[in-house]
Amino acid sequence: MHLHRYEKIWLMLGTGALALFIVILSVNAFAMGMTPPSHMEMIDPKKVDQTAPFDKPGLKKIGPNEYELVMVSFAFGYQPGNVEVPKGAKVTFITTSKDVVHGFQIPGTNVNTMVLPGHVSKITHTFDEPGKFLILCNEYCGAGHQIMATHVIVK
């Protein structure tokens, strides 16, 4: 099929830019370790409260200023809520859902993951600044979806 000369140039530039973009994305994801949250662990959604680590949700220190925060997501809240961590803490959030699909997002950070029943979600963030950070559910989960939120307090 014949292509107009300008069209060839246009498509070549466009496709070239696209290829470059894809390379950057891949390097970003795999060489620099910035893949989106894709944790593969599973759990029985009917037995969340009896299954470790969700049988004892809460903050656990795992290193110098490094923490794991196990939270259960449910309609409509997170358990435990209003957890305090020190400034500079590197926190790995670990959560799953007891009922429907939820979201887990901290506005102003890159913390954003889906919470599916049957799957465990993990996401890590370092809190360099003190403050009161909002955690909210960003996936519609029912009549109280708009009040499904809590805070992390960084001191």
């Binding site: 994801a29 795999f30 893949t35 989106p36 949250p37 894709s38 944790h39 593969m40 662990e41 599973m42 954003n112 993951t113 889906m114 599916l116 049957g118 799957h119 465990v120 979600s121 993990k122």
Partner: peptide
């Protein structure tokens, strides 16, 4: 489904 657990990166 990029933010979903259970699908590999």
């Amino acid at each position: 489904q990029l933010m979903e657990p259970g699908i590999s990166a």
